[in-house]
Design a protein around this nucleic acid. Structure first.
Lengths: 237, 237
DNA sequence: TAGTGGTCTAGACCACGGT
DNA sequence: CCGTGGTCTAGACCACTAG
C-alpha cells in the first residue's frame, strides 16, 4: 500500500479547499459522487471527510451536503472538544449564582443574535476546585425563551447539560472556543485566591445545540498555576 | 432507535473505566470479544473506542489491545491536535536560532528520559507572526542522536516536520500538551513587542513519533491579545 | 502461529432537506 | 419524491505483538 486511501482523498480535498477550488460556502461533491470519482467506498470517503470536519475545514449538513467553512482569523492550532463532564474526580463545584433572569453580557467573542436577544438571558455562575483549591470560575448564559422553568428546579446530578438533555431534549452538537491569557480582575482574583493582575487563562465557548438558533455561552477563567489545562492526543491521521 | 448503538457501548465502557472495573494500565476486552458480548459489528465497536481514545481514556496498541490510561492531574478539558501546518495564510516565520547543538532545557513539564539525555539536544527557535505583528515565540528541542546532519541543511518548505518525515522517515504520531497563562519575561516581551509582565499563553507540547523513545519538545509563547487561539469543533458524539 | 488492532469493501436502511 | 448525510452489518485482508 503506497498510501492509505483515506489519506489520499483527505489530502486532495484539503488542497482544493485551500486553493479555493471549492470556495468558502460552497458544497463539496456528494459522498456518492466522490465514491465514483475516486473509486472508493463511502466508508473510506467518509473517514476523510470526518477528519476535514474535525479540523474545521467543512461542516456536514444532513440532507444537504458538506459545506466549506471560512478559515478563522484566530490561529487554528487546537481541535477543541466540549465539556462532556471531562473534569476529573476530585472536582468540587459551588454555585456563586444559581440560575436567574438577567441581561445579556457585552463581553463575548460572539454576539447573541436578534432571535436570542428577543428574550432576556438566564445566567448562572459556579466556582470549580480541586480539593480545597479553587481553580476555575465558570460563567454561563443562554436564552430564557422556553426555559423559564429551569429557574425553579435544581440540576440533575449537578450537570447543566444532563438537565438540558433530559428535561428539554436539547443536546449539545458542537462548540467554538477562544483561548486568551489575561490579567485577573479583582473579583476573579479574590474567588480564585490569587493576586489581582496575575495571569489567567480565559476560555470562551459557544456551544451549539440541537435546537436551532439556541446557543450556550460560557466563559471559564482558569488559574493554571497549579493545575494547567492539558490533554493527550493520538493523531488519527 | 432508542439510542445509537455506538453511544451505548461508548457510555458503558466509559462508566466502567471511571468506576475502575477496567483499571488503569489494564486492557479492555478485544474488539472481537466486545462484538460477541454486545452483539454489534466491529465497525460499531470501533467507533465507540475511537471516541474513547480521542478523549484520552484509552490508547489502542496495534497487536496488543486497548489499554486504559491514567486520568491526568491536569483538567482534561481539551482534545488537542498537533501542528499539521494548521497556522493560517498570512503567517510569517523568522528564525531566531537555527538548529544548534546545546543542553537540554530544565523547564519542561516532561523530563527527557535517560535515553534521550545520552545525547545532547538540538535546539531551534522561531518567531511567528501574522503580517507584521509578532504573535508567537516557538522553541524546540529534540535529541541529536542520529540527527546531527539536520544542522547543516535548511528545512524543506520551511517545515521541520516535513523535513523529519522525508529525510529521516520520522512521523509524528501523537502529542501531549499543557496550557498555562504566565507573565511574559523580558526577552519574550521584547520579541512579541509587549510590556514585560503582560499575560502570555504558554503551550507546552511533547510530540511522540514513529521512532521509539524519540520525542520533540516545543514551547509556544503566544500573545493572545490580538489573535486568540481558537477553533471550531463539531461533536461526533 | 494465533490473536490483536488498522484498513477497506459492498452493501442495507434510516432521517433530513428540498422539489 | 429523490438525493443527501448518518448509522450499521458482515465480511475481507493486512500489519503488528507475543509466545
Amino acid at each position: 500500500m503506497a498510501q492509505k486511501r483515506y489519506l489520499q482523498i483527505y489530502g486532495t480535498m484539503k488542497e482544493r479547499i485551500q486553493q479555493g477550488v471549492y470556495g468558502v460556502g460552497s458544497y463539496l461533491p456528494s459522498e456518492n459522487e466522490l465514491c465514483n470519482i475516486y473509486g472508493m467506498t463511502r466508508t473510506t470517503i467518509r473517514r476523510a471527510l470526518d477528519e476535514l470536519q474535525r479540523e474545521g475545514f467543512i461542516v456536514r449538513e444532513h440532507g444537504r451536503g458538506s459545506r466549506v467553512l471560512e478559515r478563522r482569523q484566530a490561529l487554528g492550532l487546537l481541535a477543541v472538544k466540549g465539556f462532556s463532564e471531562a473534569v476529573g474526580q476530585d472536582v468540587r463545584t459551588r454555585f456563586l449564582q444559581t440560575p436567574v433572569i438577567g441581561p445579556w453580557p457585552s463581553s463575548l467573542p460572539w454576539m447573541p443574535d436578534e432571535n436570542e436577544r428577543g428574550a432576556p438571558a438566564i445566567f448562572f455562575e459556579r466556582l470549580r476546585g480541586v480539593g480545597t483549591d479553587p481553580v476555575m470560575l465558570e460563567s454561563n448564559w443562554f436564552s430564557s425563551d422556553g426555559l423559564e422553568t429551569i429557574l425553579n428546579t435544581p440540576f440533575e446530578e449537578d450537570s447543566f447539560f444532563k438537565t438540558l438533555s433530559s428535561r428539554y431534549l436539547i443536546e449539545v452538537t458542537g462548540s467554538e472556543q477562544e483561548l486568551r491569557a489575561l490579567h485577573a480582575e479583582d473579583k476573579t482574583a479574590g474567588l480564585l485566591k490569587i493576586k489581582p493582575g496575575e495571569p489567567i487563562l480565559h476560555i470562551s465557548i459557544r456551544f451549539s445545540t440541537s435546537r436551532p438558533r439556541f446557543f450556550i455561552y460560557s466563559i471559564l477563567k482558569c488559574n493554571t498555576a497549579k493545575y494547567p489545562i492539558g490533554n493527550v492526543y493520538k493523531h488519527p491521521i
